[in-house]
Design a protein around this nucleic acid. Structure first.
Lengths: 247, 247
DNA sequence: CGAGCACTTGATCGCTTTCAATAGCTGTGG
DNA sequence: CCACAGCTATTGAAAGCGATCAAGTGCTCG
């Protein structure tokens, strides 16, 4: 873990998420100020970063790795409510306790700020608050897209929707055909996918197999996915693959 | 309609949503500026305020009445993704097109600002942007709570959850028993409830009947609801009625 | 009084869950 | 080097819940 930390530059100007995180809009002087209150923390895969209800001492950005926000009912049913990729923000300025469990799904590095100094800075420097508003509005859009998936799509459409979301975000476009092929590694276990989609892990597994059998996806190992035809996948997701105005 | 409009004071200082809307934090001089660019619009029940994909010319606040945000698939399946009550904000600064349909569920009055002047003002006056960030974070929390409902709750729990949300927000506490009784009118048709919860209207109707039969709620007419025991309703919703940290 | 609408209720169907067994992979220790 | 534990994933069979299809009720408004 320390090794991982050492590979991260302490210098914001060389930070891999510099242009996308909450600090994206900051001027050099503002960045200096952030640099003075920031510190890095690492978490191992599976480790809980924040427990729902706990007091939050810090906020921060995911630098590398993947984390999830989950809500749980007393009987154990759990629903993922957020998927945090590098540059995503963790924590809610202006609120004491955490509303969700935040769990590291892979080994993870976070760029943290103690909550109070960060909140003070938000009041003084509009660029941080502006960027955070932008990011929050984007998250709200994503959450609402997700609500359509949870409320109205079939299991097959849910899986196809999740795959297309991940593909659009992570994939390296392939070179083979005329159609836009996509290749990526699933960052989630079948159980995590089920928690994302409001399904059981068995249903996830079955629908993955069905999509493979129908040629919508190809699987190498459990996690490596090739999508030969993104248009086809979008159709399976129930999304308009052609000119739909809304993303 | 004009009648309704006439009953709304043009003066912000007498506005019923003054202290909760996006202008809540504004100083008098900022309020003057907003007052100069604002205008009121009315909509009739059932009227679509904004179509998904359309260019948004204005943003604004719901002054009175109820509106919903909905997303639709091509085959007609629709999911409500937002329920807008007085003081809630409509529109997304910094984006051209609307991502959802906005529909007036009742006769509605909105306090509108042309988008461009409002965005300009957001850059200059931090109080508007700060308040909008607060409101957006609250909406995001609500959306995530809702995701747990959509993804993991049974039909009965979904109905109970919706009723308890509406009760907590709209209800006048009753006086009868030692337990906290609540009385309110449902602002939604069965179909709108179904779209909110990812159910069919028949299932909504059945579960409403079941909750009535089991004494969890009492119905007078189709819309007037009495909850004799909020604790009981919360249990039915699958929420921790006692000391759960998270709301 | 009849049309239209919101809602209720019944019967059946089918998708997803549940319960259960099995396969494949990785790491550990005899 | 192989056996076995532990974990993730797959697959099968059966059950259950909500959707679908279909009447029927009650209210409002012309």
């Amino acid at each position: 873990m320390t090794v991982l930390l050492d590979t991260i530059s302490q210098n914001c100007s060389e930070c891999p998420i510099r242009h996308r995180a909450v600090c994206a809009r900051c001027e050099p002087d503002e960045l200096d100020e952030l640099e003075q209150i920031k510190f890095y923390r690492t978490f191992e895969a599976g480790q809980t970063i924040i427990w729902s209800g706990d007091k939050m001492a810090f906020v921060g950005s995911v630098v590398s790795g993947i984390a999830t926000l989950t809500q749980a009912m007393e009987d154990g049913r759990t629903q993922m409510v957020g998927l945090l990729l590098p540059s995503d923000f963790v924590g809610r300025p202006g609120r004491e306790g955490a509303a969700y469990n935040v769990v590291a799904n892979t080994d993870l590095v976070m760029c943290c700020f103690r909550k109070k100094p960060f909140e003070d800075m938000m009041v003084r420097t509009p660029h941080v608050a502006q960027r955070l508003l932008e990011m929050t509005l984007d998250e709200l859009d994503a959450a609402r897209e997700w609500m359509l998936v949870l409320g109205r799509k079939t299991a097959r459409e849910k899986i196809a929707s999740l795959l297309s979301i991940i593909a659009r975000r992570d994939a390296t476009p392939g070179k083979r055909g005329p159609t836009d092929q996509m290749v990526f590694d699933l960052p989630l276990t079948r159980e995590a996918m089920a928690d994302y989609l409001g399904l059981t892990l068995e249903t996830v597994s079955r629908q993955m197999s069905a999509l493979r059998k129908d040629g919508v996806i190809e699987l190498a190992g459990k996690r490596h996915v090739t999508v030969p035809d993104m248009g086809r996948l979008m159709e399976e997701a129930g999304d308009d693959s052609d000119g739909g105005m809304l993303g």
